[in-house]
């Protein structure tokens, strides 16, 4: 039988200080946050209030602002209409070809924006001759703006909705089924109310994506002043004629609208969570 060694304590252990850890992490984080703020501050410093208001006064820019608000809102709503069912199906059901569908849904996210615009343009080349009027009502017209924004924004909305439904325990729907619900009742009465916050987030994200859309718009909708001009197009047009001040002023309008939408969605979304 072996002798058990007498218990001798190891030398007292002292943990190293955590200060360098938090310092390093904090510095790296602060650097990036600082860069974001500096960018915006530089924009602000470059333009004057007069410049800013002057930009607002131009009828082209007013038109562009109005079209941006309307088209982004339409794209966001349209994105939700598609993202909610797609997100739900992808989250809940395992079916043949699911991985393929999953990959296809990511295409608008990974494809270069210009290629999306070009592909849309080519797609509409295939509209049969009988429906030329249909094509002409869309390509290089306002509907093209919404379609181009929607094609990209929807992919982001789908991702968010899917994550939302993933987080909602499917047990609750199952209980609803045993309580007498049909699938659609379980979805409408139990799942959708619980997904409310995700829907707000998803819609906001889609709206913000639509606001930033430019490449596909340029190709599929064109950049015609007071016709298919949205804020991102305005920045491009002002920049191309060397009017840097106006471009910056419009950029700031975009920043402001994005911030407002984010704030509204955050407060609204949070309140929806705590009734």
């Amino acid at each position: 039988m072996s002798q058990i060694a007498p218990r001798e304590a190891f030398p007292e252990h002292r943990a190293r200080t955590d200060v360098p850890f938090f310092l390093l992490m904090g510095l790296i984080g602060a650097f990036y946050v600082g860069c974001i703020l500096l960018m915006l501050l530089a924009d602000l410093a470059y333009t004057s209030p007069g410049e800013f208001l002057g930009a607002f006064a131009k009828p082209e820019i007013r038109y562009s602002l109005r079209l941006t608000m309307v088209s982004c809102t339409m794209s966001a709503i349209l994105s939700l209409v598609f993202a909610i069912p797609i997100g739900y199906l992808m989250s809940r059901y395992r079916f043949r070809g699911r991985n393929l569908v999953d990959a296809i849904l990511d295409i608008p996210i990974v494809l270069p924006p210009l290629v999306i615009g070009l592909s849309l343009l080519i797609l509409f080349q295939y509209v049969p001759a009988r429906f030329t009027a249909f094509r002409e009502a869309i390509v290089y017209q306002v509907p093209a703006v919404v379609i181009a924004q929607f094609m990209v924004a929807c992919a982001f909305a789908v991702r968010t909705m899917r994550a939302t439904f993933d987080q909602i325990d499917s047990r609750r729907e199952q209980v609803a089924l045993t309580l007498g619900c049909s699938r659609s009742q379980a979805f409408g009465l139990v799942v959708l109310p619980e997904a409310w916050r995700g829907i707000v987030t998803s819609g906001t994200l889609a709206w913000a994506r639509a606001l930033g859309e430019f490449g596909p718009l340029l190709i599929f909708a064109g950049a015609t002043r007071r016709k298919t001009e949205v804020l991102s197009t305005t920045v491009f047009l002002e920049l191309s004629i060397g009017n840097l001040e106006a471009a910056v002023a419009v950029s700031l309008i975009m920043v402001a609208s994005a911030v407002i939408v984010l704030i509204v969605a955050r407060t609204w979304g949070t309140r929806a969570l705590d009734p």
Binding site: R171, R172, A176, T178
Partner: peptide, 14 residues
């Protein structure tokens, strides 16, 4: 039938 799953699975919005 009435079904009570393990964690109750209550409806969070109700």
């Amino acid at each position: 039938l009435g079904y009570v799953p393990q964690d109750g699975a209550l409806f969070t919005t109700m």
